[in-house]
Design a protein around this nucleic acid. Structure first.
Length: 535
RNA sequence: GGCGCUGUCGCCAAGUGGCUAAGGCAGCGGAUUGCAAAUCCGCCACCGUGGGUUCGACUCCCACCAGCGCCUCCA
């Protein structure tokens, strides 16, 4: 396997510190507001990564921190007239609800900053003792000038770092120094420390908690690309100066979710392009002359990363419209390091693609009588290995499995893997078609066995990235499961079948159209008629 | 200004120094169907622009253009 490492800006062979074991630390949310989709990107990606690593055979420990003490939290609490702890508790619950709606149940620890004051204070003291930090009037700062390697993660040099040092400039030796401990102002939540009452700085909790749960050096540290500097850079500085060894072997950063803005809707053309034949412009003309004029420009300014977008809706709202699996699929279809433009239109598009799979699962059940979701699927890669028979379809199944592994082994290329899954469903549908399994039923045991093999490989592969683990109830299709509704539909279908038998197509079509008008779709197949509720 | 990322079919999106440049959505044609739906088959790209390296580049290098991120406690 190969993994892209921010530290080296290259894909590197994946090796672990301890054989067979992987420790992952992912920077989690500051719980001051309900999470938006941007907060789910990392967890979804790393949930898939952890599943895949376990599938490959590793024993994985995954930690996601909860930042429950922070300036933003204090502000929010003041604004709402609540305690900081109350706000944190409320938003942590929201975060957990979102995670479980996404099927993310692989996180082993959710350490909270407020529950690790002892570790944080010890860590800070250690840095002071070693001469890497200094106390200054109630605050404690990390002395960036003492760290020769400072800037190695983000590729910045100290000289290049200007900045006036923020509000605490007068207490710092250098403007680039950052707070490990912040003295409390009157009325602020605080914890006692050797330097007076205060709270931890932004970066220190991660260093302290990661060290406690995963050890001084662990395998993978992840987070959004926006955290590379200063957050991760400072974590590296603190931890490595404190322990004298690397913090993490691999730094994995996911691309950010972008608010797509309205540019493409307004201008029709999305990206502004140079007009064909426009002079190669050695004269750096003002960009405006070459771009799509007026309306598009204005709207494009709304675009940007979703964390800053005012329009970022709460994730819980999104879940009212789309199944968690749809959102996961949407994210996984793009490589994790690439930025993604968020738009509901895109999600709806992906939803249609997903339907191909769901339909196949239904079809599989009609043909074999087996539920796709209870198919035995290999949990470990070597368990799923098989030698294909001479059957061409079985050989193709084998080949798709190989290609899926190849994609995932190369820096977790879930997009490539999903493309392969699509090819696999098509192969299986074609097989059912050409062998007429739908009408002849289970008559040909050998053919059915090939289909089962294909379906279980599908399940095996999809499960490695957290897909198709359990049936999905799409928002807005409630009622479909009611017993009474089921019986009524059965009645409609029988009446209509009679009409069709008597070539009374007007009645048959009337029933179908009438049901379609209220969102129920009938489909006639060789082996009967099925019904589904559209949202 | 500094550091960095991105630019592949109408839209989304994998990928590769040379073999037919995945897949999805949309579209078109066909098979199937009483008609539909679904499914299957077929069609639909020369990879931002200009140079360079190379026997050969979409893939490597440079410049430019465009979009974006970070440098201000945002995943």
């Amino acid at each position: 396997m190969r993994v892209y490492n921010t530290l080296s800006k290259n894909k590197e062979p994946f090796t672990t510190l301890k054989p067979g074991k992987v420790g992952i630390y992912l920077c989690g949310p500051t719980v001051y507001k309900p999470s938006h989709i941007g907060h789910m990107v990392g967890p979804i990606i790393f949930d898939s990564i952890k599943r895949y690593l376990e599938y490959v055979g590793y024993d994985v420990t995954w930690v996601v921190n909860i930042t429950d003490v922070d300036d933003k939290l204090i502000n929010e609490a003041n604004k709402r007239g609540l305690t900081m702890a109350a706000v944190a508790e409320e938003m942590t619950a929201d975060y957990h609800r979102n995670l479980s709606a996404m099927g993310i149940d692989t996180i082993d620890h959710f350490p909270k900053a407020t529950e690790h004051m002892t570790e944080i204070i010890d860590f800070t003291q250690k840095l002071i003792d070693r001469g890497f930090a200094y106390a200054s009037d109630g605050d404690v700062f990390f002395d960036v000038g003492r760290d020769r390697e400072y800037g190695k993660l983000s590729g910045r040099s100290l000289e290049a770092m200007q900045g006036e040092g923020g509000g605490a400039a007068d207490r710092k030796k250098s403007s680039a120094d950052f707070a490990l401990w912040k003295g409390a102002k009157p009325g602020e939540p605080s914890w006692p420390s050797p330097w007076g009452a205060g709270r931890p700085g932004w970066h220190i909790e991660c260093s302290a908690m990661a060290g406690k749960l995963l050890g001084e050096t662990f395998d993978i540290h992840g987070g959004g690309l926006d955290l590379v500097f200063p957050h991760h850079e400072n974590e590296v500085a603190q931890s490595e100066c404190c322990h004298g060894k690397p913090l993490a072997t691999y730094w994995m950063h996911n691309g950010l979710m972008q608010a797509s803005g309205e540019a493409d809707k307004v201008g029709g053309g999305g990206r502004a392009r140079l007009a064909e034949g426009a002079a190669p412009a050695a004269t750096a003309a003002p960009a405006a002359t070459a771009t799509t004029p007026a309306a598009g420009d204005q709207a494009a300014q709304e675009a940007g990363k979703i964390g800053k977008s005012k329009g970022a809706q709460a994730f819980s709202e999104l879940l009212k419209k789309y199944a968690g699996e749809t959102i996961r699929f949407f994210l996984l279809a793009t490589h994790y390091r690439r930025p993604i433009d968020f738009s509901e239109e895109r999600i709806q598009e992906v939803e249609k693609g997903l339907d191909t799979f769901y339909r196949f699962f239904d079809r599989y059940k009609r043909v074999t009588g087996d539920d796709f979701y209870t198919l035995p699927a290999a949990a470990r890669r070597e368990q799923g290995d098989f030698t294909p028979s001479a059957d061409a379809t079985e050989q193709a199944i084998h080949e798709h499995r190989r290609k899926f592994h190849e994609a995932m082994d190369d820096d977790f290329n879930t997009g490539g893997g999903i493309g392969d899954l699509f090819e696999l469903v098509r192969l299986l549908n074609r097989f059912v078609d050409s062998e007429k399994l739908e009408s002849t039923g289970k008559s040909d045991a050998a053919k059915v066995a090939v289909l089962k093999r294909g379906a279980s490989v599908m399940r095996e592969l999809a499960n490695t990235v957290g897909l198709f683990r359990a049936p999905v109830q799409k928002p807005g299709t409630s009622g479909a499961g009611d017993e009474l509704v089921g019986k009524l539909m059965q009645l409609f279908i029988e009446v209509r079948a009679d009409a069709r038998k008597n070539k009374n197509f007007a009645t048959a079509d009337g029933i179908r159209k009438g049901l379609a008008a209220i969102g129920v779709v009938l489909e006639d197949r060789p082996d009967g008629t099925s019904w589904t509720v559209q949202k």
